[in-house]
Design a protein around this nucleic acid. Structure first.
Length: 518
RNA sequence: GCCCUCAUCGUCUAACGGUUAGGACAGUAGAUUCUCAUUCUAUAAAUCGGGGUUCGAUUCCCCGUGAGGGCACCA
């Protein structure tokens, strides 16, 4: 029996079954596809899994900020669509009129676009009109379709009205029992459990033993109903969603049966949990680092975020972690997705971001840096940076790019290039002044400065080294105190680069004014 | 309370039933460059517990325990 489409058996196969003996010849199949067929004893029918076109959907509801878990679910759907050459659908689940907002809707389009997840069907990214021939793609515009499908259930005797709402009717013997959780008596139905063949979890059985509401008394359909109707009418082949929906799936399967439709393939992906410092449970919108918007504002590189997200619950099968998106698409597959939940690790994400930052073309870094300063809350620093000559700004950024871990460090890291009003770190000052004879070093440096060649980093280095040799000291003896005087800190790019960009006059002025404070 | 899922270093994860249990992030200690960051080297760190099956179990089975999710006229 095919684990996916539940049809036929390998003995009757026409050569379209993925079974152990026939693997060697299947060069087209990925490693994880091969593996999934054997350890768990599952078999897949190629006709259903690979030969019909994959259609997957991401179906967010615009009731809150777009967060990391949603992005990962979207990503896995998108990756699977791109991996299989299938279709990625964006559907807006906006049936909860009280909590929907246009602002959140725009945020969904914006975030997906920023992350590079383009959709083949759904509303257009600008919110005007839509694409695809299975629309409308906003549930708020699909009322007629829901009415029509409700009628099918009514006609089949599988739905009934009670207390003004419409309920889905389960088949089987009925009995009453007391529900501890809800503290009331409920009517249950005796029936064989629902069997879910999940691509990631394997076979899951769950009893579905209570009628449930499909249309509220206000006339609006509920999630379970619209979700299933939409997936049927949009011809969705694979439902990739968070494991938190696994318990809902039995309801959905019963609805598919009620409509006389074979359910799609389910793949319930693990959840993203809070990092240990953040506490227990799944990542929530209130957790630090949970919102995609935050990374966008901090100018994280979307490709780094996507790469990091792809590694939460999935891996390439070897030791590689940083990979171009094309490689991830090539290697990604559903049976290779882990079953256990993953904790979010902002530090590792930061590391990934740095890796991408290091190899970012200077031109793009410059664009991002400019955008960053344009939206920087500190308008004084921003104005100073943005009003500097373009080539000077570019030179400063070139100095900073290989040294910072994320773009939002840029203001603090480069402030002294753009203004004389930079802060001086008191602790660093104390430390540096305590070592050797810094005042003497500064005096020597100032004396040597006018004769120094400022044309290149190498020339500057040579000048300072010559000075050091002359006094029987090391480069570091001048570097540390000069850096403190000129930048107010002990971290930053090479001192030679700082000297070269700032130029003789400003170096002299800063050394002078620093000397007056010690 | 009931139902479902999961379980390898602190974290993300590798390991046809046979490995000195590997890599990455974070940590620690060094090296290097003018600081910092990078880089390099070294180091510490894991198979939840108990039973089976097996010549042999991280891997298969059962029971505990722990973690997560669900149990709405929310999605």
């Amino acid at each position: 029996m095919c684990s996916v489409c539940s049809v036929g058996n390998p003995a009757e196969s026409q050569g379209f079954w993925l079974v152990e003996d026939s693997l060697t010849g299947c060069g087209e199949l990925t490693r994880s596809q091969l593996l999934c067929s054997t350890p768990s004893g599952r078999a897949f029918c190629l006709t259903s899994t690979f030969m019909s076109k994959v259609r997957v959907r991401f179906a967010p509801s615009p009731t809150g900020f777009f967060h990391i878990g949603s992005a990962r679910t979207a990503l896995f759907n998108w990756l699977y669509a791109r991996h299989t050459g299938g279709t990625f659908i964006l559907r807006i689940e906006d049936t909860d009129q009280a909590r929907n907002s246009e602002e959140f809707l725009r945020l969904i389009y914006n975030s997906l676009t920023w992350l590079g997840m383009d959709w083949d069907e759904g509303p257009n990214p600008d919110g005007v009109g839509e694409r695809g021939s299975f629309g409308p793609y906003r549930q708020s515009q699909r009322a007629d379709i829901y009415k029509q499908y409700l009628q099918k259930l009514l006609d089949a005797g599988r739905a009934y009205e009670k207390d003004g709402a419409i309920w889905f009717k389960l088949l089987g013997e009925r009995f009453k029992t007391y529900d501890e959780h809800r503290k009331k008596e409920v009517e249950k139905v005796k029936a064989a459990p629902v069997v879910i063949e999940d691509l990631i979890r394997g076979r899951v059985e769950r009893a579905e033993d209570e009628d449930f509401v499909i249309f509220r008394s206000d006339g609006n359909p509920v999630f379970h109903f619209v979700n299933v109707v939409d997936d049927i009418t949009m011809q969705v082949t694979h439902i990739i969603r968070g494991e938190d929906h696994l318990s809902n799936t039995s309801k959905h399967v019963r609805l598919y049966e009620g409509f006389g439709v074979t359910p799609p393939v389910f793949a319930h992906i693990p959840l993203i949990l809070k990092s240990p410092e953040m506490g227990q449970g799944k990542m929530s919108k209130r957790d630090k680092g949970a919102l995609i918007e935050e990374y966008q504002q901090r100018r994280f590189l979307p490709e780094a975020l996507v790469n990091y997200l792809s590694l939460l619950g999935w891996n390439a099968g070897d030791d590689r972690e940083k990979m171009p998106i094309a490689e991830i698409i090539k290697l990604f597959d559903l049976p290779g997705v882990n079953q256990s939940n993953a904790r979010f690790d902002g530090k590792k994400l930061g590391h990934m971001n740095m890796l991408y930052l290091l190899e970012l073309p200077a031109g793009r870094f410059l664009t991002l840096a400019r955008e960053y300063f344009e939206t920087l809350p500190d308008r004084v620093v921003a104005a100073a940076a943005l009003s500097s000559p373009a080539d000077y700004f570019a030179a400063v950024m070139a100095l900073a790019q290989p040294k910072i871990k994320s773009i939002d460090e840029l203001a603090a890291y480069t402030v002294y290039f753009f203004t004389d009003g930079f802060p001086c770190d008191a602790k660093v000052k104390e430390k540096v002044l305590a070592k050797g004879d810094p005042k003497a070093r500064l005096a020597e440096l100032m004396a040597a400065l006018p004769a120094m060649d400022f044309s290149s980093d190498a020339a500057i280095e040579e000048g300072i080294k010559a000075l050091a040799v002359k006094h029987g000291l090391g480069f570091g003896d001048y570097q540390a105190v000069a850096r403190l005087a000129v930048t107010g800190t002990n971290v930053g790019p090479s001192i030679t680069g700082i000297f070269r960009l700032l130029g003789l006059a400003r170096i002299q002025a800063r050394l002078q004014s620093f000397l007056s404070t010690v």
